[in-house]
């Protein structure tokens, strides 16, 4: 086991590229608070607890899906991993290097952890050519300077995502939504990353294009052994591409497990409701609908006890509205946070 790198140790390329057997990315007890600024003196008048206590790890060749409704803190996790948002508690490790809140040293690590955002329109600069967009990480993170060399590398990357040489000198507005998302993926691949955080990469796309992107992501994973952190609200997408899933509700995991655990051995009432709310497309997928009342509560003022209890349709136990449920280990991979299983 390699020793842990924290504090002021300089992060070098050698450190980043070392062989390491453990998980690529480890998140321990992560919490992120956003301040609410208000009042006449613009002081902090409250906090939005976007992420409250999240732990997981990601291994090579694996896709970890994070599923939940909007406002449950999925995107904040991805942003915190890339240090785009400061965490208030907890640790994030890349291999054996601690990376949380070390903004200045992040540059080297950024080569290895990349992100793909939801809206490809917003993540491509409309005034840059594709060759500059995809070449930017090569210039900035890997220090490549030679124009022709960058062009050659970019073309290789575009070919990986089934785009052609003629696309090199075009501008983003000349592409369709699916092609734009391919360009964003090509850019993320530029520095040969180990982990890519995908924040709802297909939710803005049509089904037929979504299928193309999902197949592409699967192929790339096989080819380059990348680990994905796949954030989505669509359970069928994660069923197709994922290996392990964490279901989130209001900044906490409510159930984690493999695909089989979550889809065919569902335990938590929220996961059950999410699964049943998904519109079915054939007779054998159709099931009894559990329609949740109301909406996700405000993260600035979460309910006491289990945060799901105001919408939960199971019989309420006395603990439910008093104390947060503990983690219950059902099997090696299947963990659930619900009082029903706590004993």
């Amino acid at each position: 086991m390699n020793e842990a790198i924290t504090g002021k140790t300089k992060i070098t390329n050698k450190l980043i590229n070392q062989n390491y057997d453990g998980p690529l990315l480890t998140v321990k007890n992560l919490a992120v608070d956003y301040p609410i600024i208000g009042g006449i003196f613009m002081r902090q008048i409250g906090t939005v607890k976007a992420v409250r206590d999240i732990s997981f790890s990601v291994y090579p060749d694996e896709t970890l899906g994070i599923v939940g409704e909007s406002g449950c803190g999925k995107t904040t996790i991805a942003k915190t991993i890339l240090n785009l948002v400061e965490s208030s508690k907890g640790e994030i490790w890349y291999k054996n290097i601690r990376i949380d809140n070390r903004l200045k040293k992040m540059r080297k690590v950024r080569q290895k952890i990349q992100m793909v955002f939801q809206d490809p329109d917003a993540s491509l600069s409309p005034r840059m050519k594709i060759v500059d967009i995809v070449g930017e990480p090569l210039r900035n993170l890997q220090g490549m300077r030679d124009g022709t060399e960058i062009r050659r590398k970019v073309l290789l990357l575009l070919k990986q995502v089934s785009l052609k040489a003629e696309h090199l000198d075009r501008f983003p507005h000349e592409f369709s939504g699916g092609q734009k998302q391919r360009i964003v993926i090509a850019r993320a691949l530029a520095c040969e990353p180990d982990v890519i955080c995908l924040d709802e990469p297909t939710s803005a796309l049509d089904v037929s294009v979504q299928a193309q992107i999902l197949n592409l992501l699967k192929d790339l994973q096989e080819k380059f052994h990348i680990a994905y952190v796949f954030i989505t609200h669509d359970l069928s997408v994660i069923h197709h591409i994922g290996h392990r899933i964490g279901v989130m509700y209001l900044g906490l995991f409510v159930e984690t497990g493999t695909i089989d655990d979550i889809f065919y051995n569902t335990q938590h009432p929220y996961t059950k409701a999410l699964l049943s709310a998904r519109p079915a497309v054939s007779e054998d997928e159709k099931q009894h609908k559990i329609i949740l009342e109301g909406e996700i509560p405000s993260p600035s003022n979460p309910p006491t006890g289990c945060s799901f209890h105001p919408r939960c349709q199971e019989k309420m136990l006395p603990e439910c509205n008093k104390e947060s449920p503990h983690e219950t280990i059902l099997s090696d991979t299947h963990h659930v946070w619900c009082w029903k299983y706590a004993k």
Binding site: S208, V281, S282, E285
Partner: peptide
């Protein structure tokens, strides 16, 4: 279109 939908 039907084939493109990920099924559970």
């Amino acid at each position: 279109l039907m084939g493109a939908i990920p099924r559970v």
